[in-house]
């Protein structure tokens, strides 16, 4: 049975360097879970910022401790009017209209951490934000589980995971992206940098964001005290959870940049319809 068989007629599996051959790159499961996770991550990020706004500061400590504050977004009243002040590791920045004193999600401005256009919902509603956050947390976990179980079963993950043999190819691939090298190294379905990126996101960043989120739950802490300790305590975990969110945003922009830069139409087609035209030095194997 051809491992790439999809809903329509199976397309040929290309050998490495069969540039120009159209292959079925992404199965229906991969495509569906990709877009479900994409939507989940948007809602999780925006509802997470809504939840953050209820206590718009982060401490590197076990319990709340202003002496160990690493970030705070404050609205302050001055004789000249209201200002937003962002304090990062003790450094104050004026961020009026953007952070601290900003869009209230209802057409006005108020003292709040993140603006209404980036929170879910726009106006301040902690209970609502929590409902969306926890529901889409489950969506992320379940879609991720479907993808992983399917990926192991169909051998997809073995194509994606970074292997020791990929390590020598990492720099040549980066050099190619930086235009220091004319040709990329020969590779399989995913190039060495893609493998490194996806392996990090799937097996480091995603578990990390889930665990740091769970540690904020007192019910979870009661059965996972050592994990809380490892993360530096409950408030520290809240900081880590925030950092993980920033890392996901960084990944998102890098990912989208590369989707655009390496053949936007071809890449989008592969993630929507499944078909993909192989480039030079590109294969379908590991």
């Amino acid at each position: 049975m051809d491992a790439t068989a999809g809903s329509s007629a199976p397309l040929p599996r290309a050998r490495s360097s069969e540039a120009g051959v159209v292959v079925r790159r992404h199965s229906l499961v991969t495509r569906t879970t990709h877009w479900v996770v994409f939507i989940a991550m948007i809602v999780l990020t925006m509802s997470g910022l809504q939840i953050f706004n209820a206590a718009p500061y982060l401490d590197a400590s076990d319990k709340s401790d202003p002496a160990r504050r690493v970030l705070s977004l404050d609205g302050r009243t001055t004789p000249a009017g209201s200002v937003g002040v962002t304090t990062i590791l003790g450094h104050e920045l004026t961020t009026t209209h953007l952070l601290g004193y900003t869009d209230d999600g209802q057409g006005g401005e108020t003292a709040r951490g993140f603006p209404g256009w980036i929170t879910f919902p726009g106006y301040q509603d902690l209970a609502g934000g929590r409902r969306w956050h926890f529901f889409f947390g489950w969506v992320l976990v379940l879609a991720g589980a479907v993808y992983l179980i399917w990926g192991i079963g169909r051998g997809e993950l073995s194509l994606l995971i970074l292997r020791p043999s990929d390590l020598p190819k990492l720099w040549p691939m980066q050099a190619y992206y930086l235009r220091l090298r004319k040709e990329p190294p020969d590779h399989g379905k995913y190039n060495p940098l893609q493998k490194a990126g996806y392996t990090l996101v799937l097996f480091v960043l995603t578990p990390f964001v889930i665990v740091t989120g769970l540690v904020l739950a007192p019910g979870f802490d009661a059965v996972a005290q050592p994990i809380v300790w490892l993360l530096g305590g409950r408030q520290f975990a809240r900081t880590w959870h925030f950092v993980a969110m920033l890392a996901f945003i960084g990944f998102f922009f890098g990912h989208v940049f590369l989707v655009v830069a390496t053949g936007f139409v071809n890449n989008m087609r592969s993630m929507i319809l499944g078909t993909y035209r192989l480039g030079k030095h590109e294969g379908t194997g590991p």
Binding site: Q106, P115, W117, I118, T119, P121, G122, Y123, D125
Partner: peptide, 14 residues
């Protein structure tokens, strides 16, 4: 556009 963002999320929330 940004105001539209909040309108959408507020609407979904309700």
């Amino acid at each position: 556009a940004l105001a539209g963002c909040a309108k959408i999320t507020n609407g979904l929330n309700e």
